[in-house]
Design a protein around this nucleic acid. Structure first.
Lengths: 210, 210
DNA sequence: GCCATATTAGAACAAATGTTCTATCATAGG
DNA sequence: CCTATGATAGAACATTTGTTCTAATATGGC
């Protein structure tokens, strides 16, 4: 029967993937296990050939020292973590240029969140005032600077009368605005247009449990 | 006599340099040798502190698995999106090797979520059965394969009698287990130990709003 | 069929390696 | 002075890991 897949290519591919996922290289036995090979000697056999072919590098007697020749790093999306969002106070966004912010305040986000977006920033949520938006204490919300707002967008808006900021789905209806919690078991609220000030659009939420 | 240089900083610096020069990380003993330290335990001592300070990552029992946080490689942490988690059915994790998963099913996560973790995978949440865990329909939960579970961990557990899977904080109390919703306004539930089967530990949640 | 070559298995070994434990020393604070 | 804390050493242990050797199994050309 024909060889289902070329083992040697599979090994090379696995090393690349593993390195990208973990930041370091797999061991010989890990390669064997994940490439459907039963013996480390087989991997060694292929590694020697791959090295001779100039496709990988290998440190003698050194564990996890496999290297991919010509490996390049890809950049991830990074946004500045600008401040805190909490009930009872408007979102505070410093006037300094957010794109020259310190590296310490940058956080990396899944590219899927920022894809096609511009002028993103992140805010850390403090308190449980946004549980009805399914946002927990400590969550990080990724915001897009308020441009055009469409019905159904999740936005952060400042309620002037209530003196609080809230995150809800927004729907413009006649003279009023319907703010619909993301939690489907909760009821919407209605406000006059003059009472709300949209601060930004929520494009994503991150929660780091532990 | 005054300490010539801060050993801990020297260790961090050496790891960075070594990785840049070699493409992989040094071993504990190599660090010791190049940083003027006589014992691997001293390096271990400082590595633990560096990890706790969030400056490096470290795979447990894995040689040369040191990583520098914020370094380009470990910027793009990727985990396989393995399936769907929904009420009324156990988490389905395909038997195929998750590290040889197709590229299409890989998603990138903020490195902060995966820092120091191993064997992560992602599941997409279907339905509103986990609103009490502050997890919405369409969210992506990042799971760690169930190893040791500690009190307070957010876990996915399968309730045998109820025939449903739920995401809650878990506390082992006497003969019972307390499952505490992440939503602080909801009440805990108590179950017999035999009724629950921990499927994994939640290490993060992603929500991509639009 | 026969043979050269490529590939795979399995075992076994030696070295490398992460980790833990105990002990020692220095320093700062009360 | 005494104590708590941080830092270092050394030893010992259990795994992990790279490597080598031999044998078995395909595969393709003749």
């Amino acid at each position: 029967m024909p060889r289902t897949t070329n083992t040697r290519a599979a090994i090379l591919d696995f090393i690349k993937t593993f390195r990208r996922n973990n930041g370091y290289s797999p061991s010989v036995r890990e390669v064997a296990q994940h490439c459907g090979v039963k013996s480390p000697s087989v991997v060694q056999y292929h590694l020697n050939h791959l090295e001779q072919a100039g496709l990988i590098t290998k440190g003698k007697d050194r564990s996890r020292s496999l290297g991919i020749v010509g490996e390049k790093e890809d950049v991830a999306s990074r946004v500045p973590l600008l401040g805190v969002i909490a009930a009872g106070q408007p979102i505070w966004v410093p006037s300094v240029d957010r794109w020259s912010a310190e590296a310490e305040s940058m956080i990396e986000i899944p590219p899927a969140i920022g894809r096609g977006k511009r002028d993103l920033y992140a805010l850390r949520v403090r308190g449980n005032s946004m549980v009805d938006a399914m946002i927990a204490d400590g969550d990080i919300v990724i915001m897009e600077q308020a441009g055009s707002i469409n019905n159904g967008d999740v936005v952060a808006c400042w309620l002037k009368n209530e003196q609080e900021v809230t995150l809800k789905k927004i729907y413009f209806e006649n003279e009023q605005v319907r703010l619909q919690p993301c939690n489907p078991y909760m009821l919407p609220m209605y406000h006059d247009r003059e009472n709300i000030s949209v601060q930004g659009r929520v494009v994503g939420v991150l929660r780091i449990s532990s």
